[in-house]
Amino acid sequence: MKIDYRDGLLFTSITLVHGGHRILIPDVVLDTGAVHSLISIDAVDEWFQRYEPDDQLIFMHGLGGSEAAVRRRVESVQFDTFSAQPFDMDFASLREHPGINGLIGLDILIPGQFVIDLKHFEVHARYRGIGERSQ
């Protein structure tokens, strides 16, 4: 799928299925420096309005101190050819990063075997075409 190269970052979109709703989240950044994918609570505000007893609390440390995040099991996550059911997704406030609805991290990029093509600004699963690696 195409990547939108904007503001120096690689933007794409991801789909969550939760509570029977199919939620397309645009403006998420491909981030090979992130262990876990993360979605902004504001991007899912319409569907995520309650603290669930099974939510796993996370403290995120960094500049500006510590902030809460929540790891919640969603029914499925879909990104290009990658799909996982269920999936433990992190949710946090990303108000410090306006215009960014989340990060797609290595917990999706590695199992999906994604190749990020920075010449054509595309992301796709596995090697293909010229330069394909022999097995």
Binding site: H61, G62, H97
Partner: peptide, 27 residues
Amino acid sequence: PAGHFVYHTSHPEIVIELKTKPMVRRR
């Protein structure tokens, strides 16, 4: 506020994972 959090008392223990904040360095 800092040092405060919300938790559900159905949990026998308070166990919290620690991670670093996302660092997005946008142009």
